[in-house]
Simulated scan of single mutants.
Amino acid sequence: MKERTARVAVVQAAPVLFDKKSAMDQIVSRSKEAAAQGANLIVFPEVFLSGYPRGLYFGTRVGSREASGRQDWQRYWSSAIEVPGEETDLLGELAEELGVYLIIGVVERDREYSGGTLYNSILYIGPDGNVQGKHRKLVPTGSERLLWGQGDGSTLTVIDTPYGRIGGLICWENYMPLARTALYAQGIDIYITPTADARDTWQATLRHIACEGRCFVVSSNQYATKASYPADLACYDDIRDAPDVLSRGGSAIVGPLGDYIVEPLYNEEGLLYATLDLSLVTQSRYDFDVVGHYSRPDVFQLTVNTKKQRIVRQEEKSPSCSDS
């Protein structure tokens, strides 16, 4: 049976960069705090586990890479998690204990192939203790492409919950109109947008998506300072002269007609709470349903490749006549 309301909590904080224990400890403490306030859905920022390395060059310039940057990337790789893995088991136990959905941005280490690629991913962990869905960022932005590989259409994930259908995209992939359409076509009700963008223009994006998709939009960003960066990073000089506040935040919650339910939080850590009335999603689609009565499939169509992409495909050899 569907619930008519959902209590959502949005975390605005940052772990110690490249420190898996710091991130896990914060996830536990923040989740328990939110659950005590009645939260059903708890949303953490982009790559919260184990951090968004804003301002670091990783020793890279066009045409060359430095050993110091490779050392820091190794450290980042070591702080990533595998899905499934030890950390997802612990997070599943936490979600089951609290009876909540945990939606967490993670740095995912892929061990299916070489083990040398990281992904910027969202995990959806249910109150049953299981990873119910995962999304990998389709296109890392700018210099992020040095850190993370590209996801594919197999993780354009929307999960069905008692609180409606939940999914989302990460930061600037929300500027990809076809990716948004692929989610709208899955009947999304609560749209999650973990981000590292603290600019005013990001708020316009949140409100546009809410109006376009006629859905709730829940955006979580990190509030990060230089104090969260280990001083022994090989590339620490990259941020030594940077302002103390590296990301001012801007987490917010927007209703399905584009109005703020909770306005952006800036320049501090915090938890944002809202009770979402899911009947407002239905009401908002009365005059605009982007993949329903306001679409024109006779004019426009989108084809989405949801197959997992592999560089090597093993195929069984068909028996020849001489083999029979």
Results as ranks from 00 to 15, higher is better:
189 D>V: 05
194 P>G: 10
121 S>Y: 07
187 G>Q: 06
151 G>I: 04
291 V>W: 02
141 T>Q: 12
21 K>V: 13
284 S>G: 05
65 R>M: 02
265 L>Q: 15
308 K>A: 09
1 M>P: 15
299 V>N: 13
193 T>A: 11
88 T>E: 14
285 R>T: 11
262 V>W: 03
10 V>I: 14
312 V>L: 12
99 G>W: 08
16 V>K: 00
210 A>E: 14
16 V>G: 01
138 L>H: 15
84 P>C: 07
258 G>S: 01
135 H>Y: 10
96 E>A: 00
292 G>L: 07
73 W>D: 14
221 N>W: 00
266 Y>K: 03
258 G>Y: 01
241 D>R: 09
316 E>D: 15
264 P>R: 00
29 S>N: 11
261 I>Q: 02
307 K>S: 12
237 D>P: 03
194 P>H: 12
23 A>C: 05
81 I>S: 01
257 L>R: 09
92 G>H: 08
168 G>F: 01
92 G>P: 01
12 Q>F: 02
293 H>P: 06
278 L>D: 08
145 R>N: 06
236 Y>F: 12
193 T>H: 12
179 A>M: 13
177 P>G: 13
128 D>Y: 09
143 S>L: 07
34 A>V: 09
282 T>K: 06
266 Y>T: 09
275 T>R: 08
98 L>Q: 07
131 V>N: 13
6 A>T: 02
22 S>D: 15
93 E>S: 10
168 G>R: 00
248 R>I: 15
242 A>Y: 08
214 R>T: 12
175 Y>I: 01
67 A>E: 13
148 W>F: 11
77 W>N: 14
267 N>C: 00
233 L>N: 02
55 G>A: 11
217 V>F: 07
17 L>Q: 07
243 P>H: 08
241 D>I: 02
316 E>I: 07
182 A>D: 13
77 W>R: 12
199 R>E: 14
120 N>I: 05
322 S>T: 07
259 D>P: 04
97 E>H: 10
9 A>F: 04
242 A>H: 09
4 R>S: 10
137 K>P: 03
207 R>S: 03
103 I>A: 01
137 K>W: 05
237 D>E: 14
235 C>W: 05
66 E>Q: 06
112 E>P: 01
192 I>C: 13
86 E>A: 05
49 L>A: 11
51 G>C: 08
78 S>K: 11
61 R>K: 15
92 G>N: 03
165 R>Q: 13
145 R>F: 01
307 K>Y: 11
166 I>S: 10
255 G>Q: 05
281 V>P: 03
192 I>M: 11
94 L>R: 05
253 I>P: 02
256 P>R: 03
269 E>T: 10
218 V>Y: 14
199 R>D: 13
158 V>C: 04
221 N>T: 08
242 A>D: 10
72 D>N: 12
236 Y>L: 10
83 V>I: 12
41 L>V: 04
312 V>P: 09
284 S>Q: 02
249 G>C: 04
168 G>Q: 00
117 T>M: 03
111 R>E: 15
228 S>V: 15
291 V>A: 04
167 G>Q: 08
307 K>T: 11
174 N>P: 00
40 N>W: 03
140 P>L: 05
287 D>G: 00
320 S>G: 03
206 L>C: 05
122 I>M: 15
317 K>H: 11
7 R>Y: 13
285 R>N: 09
80 A>M: 01
123 L>F: 09
111 R>P: 01
287 D>M: 00
60 T>D: 15
174 N>M: 01
49 L>I: 13
121 S>R: 00
12 Q>H: 02
51 G>P: 07
